[in-house]
Design a protein around this nucleic acid. Sequence first.
DNA 1: TGCCTGATGTTCT
DNA 2: GAACATCAGGCAC
Length: 191
Amino acid sequence: VIESFNILNNNANTAAKLLLGCEFERTIGNKIIRVRIVETEAYDQADAASHSYKGMSPRTKVMFDTPGHLYVYFIYGMHYCCNIVVGPEGYGAAVLIRAVEPLSGICVTEKNRGRVAGGLNLTNGPAKLCKALAIDNRLNGHYLADEPLKLILNKPLPKSKIVQTTRLGITKAVDLKLRFYIKGNQYISKV
DNA sequence: TGCCTGATGTTCT
DNA sequence: GAACATCAGGCAC
């Protein structure tokens, strides 16, 4: 376990790889859900697909905050997605968490998602995992060293375990290979 | 199995 | 008024 978020003071591309294998600890009442990050995407202000591309706005200002904050945005009228803010303060960069692997507290996760979801479909998508972990705009700007949502940094994975591909669901800068996932993991959102 | 669409709010043009 | 870092359900094949 790495104690400080300093390693996230890095470019989004590097930070997205470092975050693979790290964990979230979500506290809801007296229940704790623990999940492992298995899929990420990098976004920064030099990238046309990034929310921070057009500069700071009320919505995107969290992306310009110090590393280790959570940027939650609402999309398509019904979904939340969560990002971990990275890079130096004042530079708009974040890593989208696309998929996580449940480790413990899964029954709570299932309840959050409703009866329809189960097994692999519980957390294998950015909006699904937000729902499963009860993440919404109230956690926008939350600092991930604190309750009720903590980020636990683990040792970086070896390069051989990381697959790098193009990002999903975007219409700009589609050719950039800024999506990363853990090789062979069954909880990634799509191959 | 795979395409199509409905749901639906916030942001920016 | 359109775009949008989505998901799940329906219907055709």
